[in-house]
């Protein structure tokens, strides 16, 4: 397997697992949203890595290269990045509201059924 691909798949799996672990164990809401941001980054890298072709070049018309990487995942990731930042902005506004009502960022409620 190509070294770059291996490195980036390793990064993807680690970032996603770290983020998931943070979401599940942390009680601080800011920490939870930081973890979710890390997961977002991981997914973006995953899409790009799936589209990568060893030896390929960026999908911009170029006379010197014959092989290009898959352009579609890159377009999807552009979308995903912007969606990520919009969700994060709204989340942080909600956190500010929560803090102004409760005076803390710790989430005590848990999952009550």
């Amino acid at each position: 397997m190509n070294g770059v691909i291996m490195a980036s798949y390793f990064t993807v799996a680690s970032l996603l697992s770290i983020g998931l672990y943070g979401v599940m164990t942390k009680r601080n809401l800011m920490k939870i949203f930081i973890s979710l941001s890390i997961m977002d980054t991981g997914v973006n890298l995953m899409l790009i890595t799936i589209g990568y072709l060893p030896g390929g070049t960026a999908p911009i018309e170029n006379a010197n290269f014959a092989k290009y990487v898959d352009p579609l995942p890159q377009a999807l990731v552009l979308t995903a990045i912007v969606i990520g930042v919009s969700v994060t902005a709204l989340a942080l506004v909600l956190l500010i509201k929560y803090h102004s009502k409760k005076g803390t960022l710790e989430y005590k409620g848990g999952m009550k059924w």
Binding site: V43, L47, I50, P73, A91, K97, Y107
Partner: peptide, 28 residues
């Protein structure tokens, strides 16, 4: 309302990350 929205948001963002992973795997 704020508490519910935050809970919804945490689970919803996690869910959308999972949807995107599933899409990426299908696309691969």
């Amino acid at each position: 309302a704020v508490e519910g929205a935050i809970k919804y948001m945490i689970l919803g963002s996690l869910g959308s990350t999972f949807i995107l992973m599933g899409i990426a795997l299908i696309y691969s």
